[in-house]
Design a protein around this nucleic acid. Structure first.
Lengths: 354, 354
DNA sequence: ACCCGCTAATAATGCGCATTATCGAATTGA
DNA sequence: TCAATTCGATAATGCGCATTATTAGCGGGT
């Protein structure tokens, strides 16, 4: 038999004051012209102590505006092993930021997964309303959804750069272009002149950016681009030899570990004969695997920044006042799109040209 | 300009009906004597579609409904590497169950972590109210908190057996006692007679249960118990030799991998000279590490069961009706405490007595 | 004409709290 | 002495929804 919760009214009765008085005492506030005598204040505090009263958060939110909940939507199940390796670092950052912001995280697990991919269906949308705003992780190209997001003016932030509708979608991404340029420059600095790009050409943003960076850097140096596009590692290794490349850059999803193995099997030591720079972290770090040179994507930091941005966007929402009664100020456009630098990693797979 | 949320009243205005009507249409209910004509119903549904209305869950909750949100509280940060290995499997199960139940998960990241441990402070409690119920992971012995949980009659379920206040706290745990008994029996079946228990004596429930199982099994067989309690692995290995044990059981937190290494360094091959059974999964599975014999804790399954249990408890809460307008039936006491069996694992660390 | 029964909907209320407007009494100023 | 000010607190309202009580309209039966 559900015992009724103690309410402010109960406390008020016990202290012989009105509910409003209790509310004032609790919040410490005495907005404009309201004053509570010290003696009364103590009576109320005593009553609170005795009854063990705790405020009903739901009512608080309803009266106040924001829920102090931020949503996280992932397009795949979040926790299974494979996803965990990928989402993990982002979530670390997100969780950390959430803690500092004093915000709870809502995972939209109710969205039905169709063929392993979550759908943001109409029903899914409904649920978003709980949170003051929502973070979106993963690739998704459903135009309808994006449009709906913009239309409803619901605060959200993508993790990962958005190219197509760029101007309108707030995101926190990584600067793949710049980082890739730097990798090529490193190689040139080491004396390399025949530098290839290994990997299947995808249309996902990171790949586009890596290719762009590669192109840009080589052009600036007046060198020729060489794309090794075979999705078969052995064939790729062959091609590298045939084209007498002395260095390649390769994205993590293109099996760099196996590629290096194949190269060495053909007598091309890494990095002595061929330098290999990795454009991002290894996807499945092997114990005893190579120490890759290249750059790393600051996933954790991205999580942090994304949640902070979202928090600011959300603060301007609802009837929302923040904790201190201030409305959130508008977020400057410049902050709506953040590209974080990817730090270089010095490993053991880059060396001077032979 | 803060986007005001669309409310039922807005929808009602657009459809030319009353707020109440919208509510009825939404819930499908037509409680006792209220009827909505088909044509009106359509108008309302259209208005909902056009406005993109989504119910404010906070208001729903305040009015007595359920939010279809279940909370997850972990006593440590959830995602950092170390925790992830531990919490991961539970979360996989929880997420899976959430998806099937059509429920969202709320992570209480707002609870301030003090010294790496989350506190469920007064402020933390407030937040719980948003969720229909809450799952609790990790050890916590704060009596005050537990009492508060019970007092407020808030639905919750522990993951991991609760011994002390057992009768009153709903939990889903693993049958460490039974599983440990089986391990000893396996060893006895292999001809072992001097079987030790390696590990520091903690007061945490799993340890208590493992010790109990160990005691019980040896007693039933009429064999003597030998506790190797040194928290130094080398010392433990020495002691195993000195006591001429032919087999030991060891909990994962007691560095089994290092222990085995130490044993072999002393010339005692595992399992030829000494069998070692692991009472649970390795905490930090090493690549190329041993294939342990012993048992495994069904963490994923525990997550699933816990969320299902919680869901049922929560359904009986508030003024709560579930989606179909039925009240949750009372949950039988027998289901309030679930102990799942831990399947045996056949690895390469157990052999016949020398 | 009148009451009955039925349909289709609305008005009104409360959930627990924050907040605004309001009020009575005590004190001050001239 | 009477208006003005300050102090101390309360009444009232709204947040968005679920739910209960109530009303309005209308055809049929006697």
């Amino acid at each position: 038999m559900p015992r009724r919760r103690i309410t402010q009214t109960d406390v008020a009765a016990m202290a012989g004051v009105s509910q409003a008085t209790v509310s004032f005492v609790l919040n410490g506030n005495t907005p404009a012209g309201v004053r509570i005598g010290e003696e009364t204040r103590q009576r109320v505090l005593d009553a609170i102590r005795i009854t063990g009263y705790t405020a009903n958060p739901v009512a608080q939110r309803l009266a106040g505006g924001l829920t102090q909940i931020l949503g996280v939507f992932t397009y795949e199940a979040t926790f299974p092993r494979a996803s965990r390796d990928f989402y993990g670092p982002f979530l670390v950052g997100i969780e950390h930021a959430a803690e500092r912001l004093g915000v709870d995280l809502l995972l939209f697990t109710s969205a039905p997964a169709v063929g392993g991919r979550r759908q943001l269906t109409r029903d899914g949308w409904q649920r978003l309303g709980v949170a003051d705003g929502c973070l979106l992780l993963g690739q998704h190209e459903d135009r309808g959804e994006l449009q709906h997001l913009l239309d409803t003016n619901y605060p959200f932030v993508f993790i990962g750069k958005r190219g197509s509708d760029g101007g309108r979608l707030p995101y926190v991404g990584a600067d793949y272009v710049g980082a890739t340029v730097r990798q090529v420059d490193r190689l040139v600095g080491l004396g390399h002149e025949r530098i290839g790009y290994v990997g299947v050409r995808g249309t996902d943003q990171p790949t586009l950016d890596r290719v762009e960076g590669y192109r840009k850097a080589l052009k600036a140096r007046g060198l020729a681009t060489v794309f090794v596009e075979s999705d078969d590692v052995a064939a790729a290794a062959d091609e590298i030899g045939a084209r007498s490349l002395t260095a390649v850059v390769v994205a993590p999803e293109n099996h760099p570990e196996e590629l290096a193995d194949e190269l060495e099997r053909r007598g091309s030591r890494v990095p002595d004969a061929v330098s290999v720079l990795l454009l991002g972290q290894p996807h499945h770090p092997r114990r005893g695997g190579r120490r890759w040179s290249g750059f790393s994507v600051p996933r954790e930091e991205m999580g942090v920044r994304a949640l902070h941005l979202l928090s600011r966007l959300a603060a301007g929402d609802g009837n929302g006042r923040d904790r201190d009664g201030r409305r959130g100020a508008a977020v400057p456009d410049a902050e709506l799109h953040q590209l974080l630098p990817c730090p270089d990693v010095d490993g053991a797979t880059a060396a001077a040209a032979p």
